[in-house]
Amino acid sequence: MAGASPVRVVLADDEAMIRAGVRAILATDPGIEVVAEAGDGHAAVELVRAHRPRVALLDIRMPRLDGLAAAAEIRRVVPETATIMLTTFGEDDHVARALGHGANGFLLKAGDPRELIAGVHAVADGGAYLSPKVARRVIELGAGRLARRPVARDRTAGLTEREREVLALVGAGLSNAEIARRLHLVEGTVKSYLTSIFTRLDVRNRVQAAILAYEAGLVDG
């Protein structure tokens, strides 16, 4: 959108090459600006405190303060900053812990670069983003602990057809704006549907809703 300010991001990872790669991907989107970088969790918190970015991208494993502890501290001192955890398939236990602590997003370091950009925009818009591959992995391991498939299907059975459509698109990683375009709705209507869905399913955030969508078989793959 012309004249819109870019999404300001603080990036934290203890591997310089990973930071460089993530920064290069984000630089392809003029709507995103990396304002600072850190090599450990403690520095990440201080940079977030100083720069007040909209999004903090945090590696789960970092020295001095790991990504989960850094995210918790960021939510305490700068609650308006959304947090996205960068993870690998070998860190499923950390993903499960982060789910319980309300992180806004989860992305695979080796995932599709488009997911990185989509995830930053999604959480910046007040939503959350769960990489589809991360969602599938969490469910395969039973780490989400939200529900097994029969129970998930029972939980979603009471939703209206339109609410099920919205939930499925949340599970597929779409932002509110993308869901609105796909279903030919205005964005405010999508937000209203999500409020109803969260209440009826008794989930705390978009990430838990996405996992439940996978559990219930609403998302392909």
Rank of each mutant, 00 (worst) to 15 (best):
R8C: 14
V10S: 02
A12I: 06
D13Y: 08
D13R: 06
D14E: 07
M17T: 07
R19P: 14
R19W: 14
I25Y: 00
D29H: 00
E33Y: 05
E33T: 11
V34T: 15
A36P: 15
E37C: 10
E37K: 10
G39N: 08
D40R: 09
H42G: 12
A43T: 15
L47G: 04
V48Q: 02
R52Y: 05
R52W: 06
P53T: 13
D59C: 09
I60S: 02
I60H: 05
R61C: 05
R61A: 07
P63W: 02
L65S: 07
D66E: 10
A69F: 00
E73G: 10
E73T: 12
I74Q: 15
R76I: 07
R76W: 08
P79F: 14
T81Y: 12
L86F: 05
T87I: 08
G90L: 05
D92K: 09
A96D: 01
A98K: 14
A98Q: 13
A98Y: 13
G100R: 13
D112N: 15
P113G: 04
A124R: 01
D125W: 10
G126M: 07
G127I: 03
K133Q: 09
K133I: 05
K133Y: 05
A135R: 00
R137H: 04
R137S: 04
I139N: 05
G142I: 04
A143S: 02
A143M: 03
A143C: 01
A147C: 06
R148W: 07
D154P: 02
T156W: 00
G158F: 06
R162W: 00
R162A: 01
R164Q: 06
E165S: 03
L167C: 04
A168G: 11
L169E: 05
G171Q: 07
A177T: 13
A180E: 08
R182Q: 05
R182V: 02
H184C: 03
E187I: 14
G188D: 01
V190N: 03
K191Q: 11
K191F: 04
S192Q: 14
L194G: 04
F198C: 11
R200D: 13
V203G: 11
N205P: 13
N205D: 15
V207E: 06
Q208W: 07
A209Q: 06
A210W: 09
L212T: 05
E215T: 11
D220I: 13
